[in-house]
């Protein structure tokens, strides 16, 4: 491994292509982190089982498709509701009792993730499973020198739509007003007659459901393993933390991290890029622990 192999010189077209790939990576991280952002931003809960919610979304897509013959597009909303149901139950049974001990939610949800991984492995086996995609998603888009699989374009579009939907719910509906009120000050919101516990249930279920959609998307371009979720969890957390737990913050941080990661790995290689990116993030958080965007810091 000499220095010349390690360091790729700059060339315009491959570099622009790296930027496009960066956009695709950013959309994947964003869609993985979206549910986490909502849960962390609203409740301050660090949900380590988030990756397993993604995995459940992928497996429910697989089951719906292989056994019940659902078309792929219908699997996305179906995965949302299935995983949201899971999240709702877990919130009721476990998370609810740990709100006073945030670090312990981190640990308890880690236990949940172990149980989910092994449970799925017992049911479906450890060997990889596959989700089929419609033929129109199977080819690659070719515009000039830019070459991108349609599936990746589709993920970019869906992640954008989900951000818009979440934004709409948070800022244009009564439920959203309640969620934001609880987010800012739980006690004050409760004294105005908002049922904070119910808001937490809904938020957690919604966050889990979004992870389910992410899983359905990821299942389409990667094979399914019971422990596939652990591959997303660290990146998803970093997106949320760098973004400051805000919806907009996560959009920016996912974009920034995806592009930086892609550009670094263009110049060096994937793993070294990862090392540099993670180290940069740690240094960034040292100087700005509140993240890129922080609204009134009433909760923390």
């Amino acid at each position: 491994m000499s220095v010349h192999d390690f360091w790729t010189p700059f060339a315009l077209e491959p570099f622009l292509n790296a930027l496009i790939v960066g956009l695709s990576i950013a959309s994947i991280w964003l869609v993985a982190a979206l549910g986490l952002t909502i849960i962390y931003g609203t409740m301050g809960v660090i949900n380590m089982a988030h990756g397993e919610f993604i995995m459940l979304g992928a497996y429910s897509t697989y089951v719906l498709q292989s056994y019940l013959g659902f078309p792929f597009l219908l699997c996305l909303p179906a995965a949302f509701f299935i995983v949201a149901g899971f999240g709702w139950v877990i919130e009721k049974v476990l998370i609810r009792h740990l709100y006073q001990r945030p670090l312990d939610t981190l640990l308890a949800t880690w236990g949940v993730s172990l149980v989910l991984i092994q449970g799925v492995r017992l049911v479906f086996g450890g060997e990889p499973q596959y989700v089929g995609v419609p033929t129109w998603l199977d080819s690659a888009m070719q515009i000039g020198f830019i070459n991108l699989a349609w599936l990746r374009v589709f993920i970019i579009v869906v992640s954008g739509l989900m951000v818009l939907l979440t934004w709409w719910i948070l800022f244009r509906t009564v439920t959203g007003v309640r969620i934001r009120a609880v987010m800012q000050n739980k006690e004050m919101a409760a004294s105005f007659g908002i049922n904070a516990n119910q808001v937490y249930s809904i938020t957690f279920a919604y966050g889990a459901g979004v992870a389910g959609v992410a899983g359905a998307l990821f299942g389409a371009f990667k094979s399914l393993f019971p422990d596939m979720g652990s591959g997303y969890i660290v990146e998803a957390f970093l997106v949320v933390v760098v973004g400051g737990g805000q919806l907009i913050g996560s959009v920016f941080s996912a974009g920034l991290m995806g592009e930086m990661g892609s550009v670094f790995s263009y110049f060096t290689n994937d793993t070294f890029a990862r090392f540099v990116l993670f180290t940069l993030i740690v240094v960034f958080l040292r100087f700005r622990p509140q993240g890129l965007i922080s609204e009134a810091m009433t909760r923390r």
């Binding site: 308890a108 236990g111 149980v115 991984i117 092994q118 492995r121």
Partner: peptide, 10 residues
């Protein structure tokens, strides 16, 4: 085993 240890931990 993972079920046991995960459940125990919870």
């Amino acid at each position: 085993w993972l079920l046991i240890i995960g459940g125990l931990f919870i």
